[in-house]
Design a protein around this nucleic acid. Structure first.
Length: 823
RNA sequence: GCCCGGAUGGCGGAACUGGUAGACGCAAGGGACUUAAAAUCCCUCGGUCGAAAGACUGUGCCGGUUCGAUCCCGGCUCCGGGCACCA
């Protein structure tokens, strides 16, 4: 038998065992409590990095622990396999994105297997597989039928060099992330998912996800951005019609002195008088060229232009000049803003620049504002002035009163507004899921019939890197007969955003080979929701919001029964080295392969779990890795050193234990309790591991030449090995076997602590004088309060501090401390 | 600007409900073993004073509540993250 710990050999041995016996394959089993554990699946970029190692190590602890506790654990893995990098690699290497992607998947799968993760590999899926994306196309068509997928013209980020649309996150400093050319705005016909339809529900449920980190929920609430206010109509002067605005500050309506429209506002052209036309058009042109990238500008200057037209303040009757303003967004509210320069900072700056009138309508307490003397808008609450019948009211109350008044007069109505916009999913890219739509000159927009699904990505495509989407140029793909009339028609050449695939993959894991539809409801209902989801915080809004949206859509389409996809969410921190996130450019990358080759997967896992709690950033330390390796060697050595001692031992005879053995056994069972609580309640793996290290230190010094010594040590070692199993499964399996077990540890139950064993016989009581530690005494359990007090008052270390002083009070916390108050 | 986090030894971190601050690990120093080194094992390890016993001090800063505060409250400083013309 090997006396030296040799991770490579034992890790291969057990990985093979788990694979051959399909240890982690699961099916629905109604006799057991189910537990769906999921880590965010990786993009197959080439090789795994330390962030993956950490993410999947955390998940594996939970999975193996729950499994040992008797849960039916679903723990799947797959690949987020569509995306731009594959296409770029194809352009560079003159190959095909599919080749690159599948090679990466094969390599990374091997890496994950080397980590010994407890996945049910039978459920593996790749989103670029037609057997996956075909169902997504079907879901798209059902959403289209219900009006949840629709096409509209909108402004998008456009790279003129690459001739393609870029997602917001693909724009860096106003330029294309690939070629750095300046990104412009282009108006394009694009497909959208109507996520705004679910804004209210998505928001409401953020209060019903107690298992999510609060900051993620806050970010989602901010992103959805619900606000309460009014829509108000401002009649146009000398004409018919009105300008409708949205405002949350209807209490300032009497102070509205001009009107600001978004440059894209449909009324902009109509309201522009002939003599103003030249100036207005120049302004619109300028805004179109510069807008959106304004995000990166620090303080974008407020600019505008007068249209030449006027509208009327419905409450004051005052004439208000209608301006176009660069800071007014067409996408939010109605694209028109009533300008109240005294009580809105943007309007204040704008009015100053163009010398527009100002009227104070809210006064702060104990102060009288003078528009001429103001240096900034007053945006807080106060008392209403210059507001007719509302004068003297508190502005907060006036909000409600004015809203009611507007509604009764038919001038406006109360409304809510959301910041959330519909999700633009069109991508002018090849390596994505084709949108299953055909355009026919006679029949219009025609869905691809279900019998023709999937619309497959053609493989005979050249990747030159020039001229936009290869799909748009491929005649054999684009030219199709219209499914309705049979006349020549054109296929949609855009593909779907890759976030669409990751919005429902967790559902497909429940029934990955199902061929009759996207989802097998019975099986999905058994497994869903995901009991624990684990991944990076960077997806706090995008992926996690989209997945929630999709879950609700699929529920409403009748595919599933649950409202929310993820009951509990753990967002793990980044892996840091030398004070910075690991990156090639910083040269601080740790390669998982090298780490595993040198120390084994168990050490890699152990260190990434021990160095910090999961949600915090993890500071990588090569010496720390050495320490984890040393610990495993000590575990290995201790078990082997004690093998002779425990060979013939049975269960300990509790009544025959010596005091030392009782103390040792107490340490064992307290460790079981501690590790169990740390994993189960808090995911504090670092402290769980620390307590096993303490136990090891205790066991190493234990003398065991008594009759029950072997039995107590055997129980101790077996418990230790079981407790370590979720963290370092390979060495645990091997030691379990060497301890004489014929059946593998992976089939064993998690140890239960003995409630009698953990009860202390003696307690350490701390003695304080005026809150300062002065002495400690050990007393038998059950010593009454008075006895402890008199012990404390007579303690020789305490006496000097109370002699000659009046004892005012003695506070006694049973079993913990005595505090003597003197003065 | 607004909204969240966070700040504890040389370092990563622990202290669960207000009750021994610094568990566990790393680094460092000393020692044992060795011809020597590595590995391993043992000891010390917040600061100041002290030969020691011990005393004082100490959880970003200032103040408060309390018998007692890393923990609760008020006011700051710094760091990290998110949102940012959202009407």
């Amino acid at each position: 038998m090997d006396l030296k710990y040799s991770p490579t050999d034992i890790e291969q041995k057990w990985q093979r065992h788990w694979e051959e016996t399909k240890t982690f394959a699961v099916t629905e089993d109604r006799a057991k409590r189910k537990y769906y554990l999921l880590e965010m699946f990786p993009y197959p970029s080439g090789r795994i990095h330390m962030g993956h190692v950490r993410n999947y190590s955390i998940g594996d602890v939970v999975g193996r622990f729950k499994r040992m506790r008797g849960f039916n654990v679903l723990h799947p893995m797959g690949w987020d396999a569509f995306g731009m990098p594959a296409e770029n690699a194809a352009i560079q290497n003159k190959s095909h994105p599919a080749t690159w992607t599948y090679e990466n998947i094969a390599y990374m799968r091997g890496q994950l297997k080397k980590m010994g993760l407890s996945y049910d590999w039978g459920r593996e899926l790749a989103t670029c597989d037609p057997e996956y994306y075909r169902w997504e196309q079907r879901i798209f068509l059902e959403m289209y039928a219900k009006g949840l997928a629709y096409k509209k013209t909108s402004f998008v980020n456009w790279c003129p060099q690459c001739e393609t649309v870029l997602a917001n996150e693909q724009v860096e400093d106003g330029g294309c992330w690939r070629c750095a050319s300046p990104v412009t705005q282009k108006e394009l016909d694009q497909w959208f998912f109507r996520i705004t339809e679910y804004a209210e529900e998505l928001l409401e449920w953020t209060d019903r996800l107690p298992g999510w980190p609060e900051r993620v929920l806050v970010m989602q609430r901010n992103w959805i951005g619900k606000s309460f206010g009014c829509e108000i109509d401002f009649p146009l002067e000398g004409g018919t019609g009105a300008i409708r605005v949205f405002t949350t500050r209807q209490d300032t309506l009497f102070g509205a002195t001009f009107m600001s429209l978004a440059p894209e506002h449909p009324l902009a052209a109509e309201l522009t008088t002939p003599e103003r036309r030249g100036e207005v058009e120049a302004f619109i042109d300028k805004v179109k060229k510069t807008e959106r990238i304004k995000r990166t500008a620090e303080e974008f200057e407020k600019e505008g232009v007068f249209t030449g037209s006027w509208c009327i303040n419905p409450l004051t009757g005052a004439r208000m000049p209608v301006y176009l303003a660069n800071f007014v967004l067409m996408e939010y509210g109605t694209g028109a803003v009533m300008a109240v320069p005294t009580h809105d900072q943007r309007d204040f700056e704008f009015a100053g620049k163009y010398s527009l009138p100002m009227q104070v309508v809210i006064q702060p307490a104990g102060e009288t504002l003078d528009p001429a003397a103001m240096t900034a808008a007053f945006t807080e609450a106060g008392t209403m002035v210059n507001s007719g019948r509302f004068d003297g009211m508190a502005s907060e109350a006036a909000k409600e009163a004015i809203a009611d008044y507007l509604q009764s007069e038919g001038i406006g109505r109360k409304t809510v507004n959301f910041r959330l916009r519909d999700w633009g999913i069109s991508r002018q890219r090849y390596w994505g899921n084709p949108i299953p739509i055909i355009y026919c000159d006679s029949c219009g927009v025609v869905p691809v019939p279900e019998k023709d699904l999937p619309v497959r990505l053609p493989m005979d495509v050249e990747f030159t890197g020039e001229g936009g989407s290869p799909l748009a140029k491929l005649e054999s793909f684009g030219n199709v007969p219209c499914p309705l009339c049979g006349k020549p028609a054109r296929r949609e050449s855009d593909t779907m955003d890759t976030f669409v695939q990751s919005s429902w993959y967790f559902l497909r894991y429940c029934c990955p080979e199902f061929t009759e539809g996207p989802l097998d409801r019975e099986r999905v209902d058994y497994w869903m929701s995901v009991d624990q989801y684990i991944g990076g915080i960077e997806h706090a809004v995008l992926h996690l919001l989209y997945a929630r949206f999709f879950t609700k859509v699929l529920r409403d389409l009748g595919y599933i029964g649950c409202d929310e996809p993820f009951t509990n969410l753990l967002t793990q921190g980044m892996v840091i080295k030398d004070g910075a996130k690991m990156s090639k450019s910083k040269g601080n990358v740790v390669d998982p392969n090298a780490l595993i080759d040198k120390y084994g997967a168990d050490t890699a896992r152990l260190f990434s779990l021990f160095a910090a709690p999961p949600e915090k950033d993890l500071d990588w330390s090569d010496q720390g890795v050495d320490g984890s390796f040393r610990f495993l060697n000590r575990v290995w050595k201790l078990v082997h050193d004690r093998l002779d001692l425990i060979r013939d031992a049975g269960a300990p005879e509790l009544s025959a234990l010596t005091p030392e053995e009782r103390i040792l056994r107490r340490a064992v069972h307290k460790t079981i309790r501690k590790v169990t609580e740390d994993i189960e309640g808090r995911f504090h793996f670092n402290t769980a591991i620390a307590s096993v290290m303490e136990l090891l230190n205790t066991l190493q010094t234990a003398e065991s030449n008594t009759p029950q010594g072997g039995a107590v040590m055997k129980e101790a070692l077996e418990s230790m090995v079981l407790l370590l199993a979720p963290f370092v499964p390979h060495i645990s399996e091997e030691l379990w076997q060497r301890l004489g077990h014929g059946t593998p540890l992976s089939g064993s139950a998690w140890p239960e602590y003995d409630r009698d064993a953990v009860v202390e016989e003696e307690l350490l009581v701390v003695i304080q004088v005026n809150g300062k530690l002065r002495s400690k005494v050990t007393v038998p359990v059950g010593t009454d309060e008075e006895a402890v007090k008199s012990l404390a008052l007579a303690d020789e270390k305490v006496l000097p501090f109370i002699e000659g002083k009046e004892v005012r009070k003695v506070i006694c916390v049973p079993g913990k401390l005595v505090n003597i108050v003197v003065g």
